[in-house]
């Protein structure tokens, strides 16, 4: 059964509004009964539409999950109506950790500490509690936790995807890893 993209878009929007939290593209496709590709197409349509009519809505995307959010331009009014802002008391140390997680995530605590040269467990826990970073188990080693940016962090930055961060490509690269893969050890 195929569905008009106009309809897919409409159904997606209503589900996103009612669901509120971030929803996976897979689940959305299942709920509406279309393919994941059609959902992706729907996202593009919705985004285009929001842009065209200068909508108060926006859609953020993270690891195949999307969420309907308010447009960054409306922040000042929405903040007045709901709660104080999240940026309160983010120390410069916390911002450093946040930037490493944002650009390099998923990243292990040891890696963050290697870059900053100090123990970061307290700051990380704080950021976890505030929901600005997420913790996942490493796929390689289940004893190891990796930290990555959350939907709340994207919303705090007012960005639809993490790739919109300034100089993302440059800062994402770990030059050392790259050099190591470019010059593998050639023995014998």
């Amino acid at each position: 059964m195929s569905m008009e993209i106009e309809d897919v878009k409409k159904y997606m929007e209503s589900v996103l509004l009612a669901y509120g939290e971030a929803i996976s593209i897979r689940k959305l496709a299942q709920v509406i009964g279309v393919s994941q590709n059609e959902i992706r197409q729907g996202i593009e349509y919705l985004r285009g539409e929001y842009l065209d009519r200068k909508s108060g809505f926006a859609i953020i995307e993270k690891d195949d999950e999307i969420q309907l959010v308010t447009h960054p331009d409306c922040a000042i009014f929405v903040r007045k109506s709901v709660r104080g802002d999240m940026s309160q008391s983010l120390t410069s140390a916390a911002l450093e950790v946040l930037s490493i997680v944002a650009y390099r995530g998923p990243v292990a605590r040891a890696e963050i500490e290697a870059i900053r040269g100090v123990n970061c467990s307290f700051i990380l826990r704080n950021l976890l509690v505030r929901g600005l970073v997420e913790r996942i188990e490493s796929t390689e080693d289940s004893r190891l936790f990796l930290y990555k940016s959350s939907c709340a962090l994207l919303r705090l930055f007012g960005m639809s995807t993490i790739e919109q961060l300034p100089e993302y490509e440059f800062l994402r690269k770990d030059t050392r890893i790259e050099n190591a893969t470019q010059h593998p050890f050639k023995e014998n």
């Binding site: 903040r79 919303r155 930055f157 007012g158």
Partner: peptide, 30 residues
Amino acid sequence: WRLAEYKKFKESAKVLKSIIESGSEMFVRE
């Protein structure tokens, strides 16, 4: 290498700070 790496993120932290302070947060029906 580590010093250069740290410098990068120290600077990017300042950029992120200004992004946050620009107040363009997006909200959800929390």
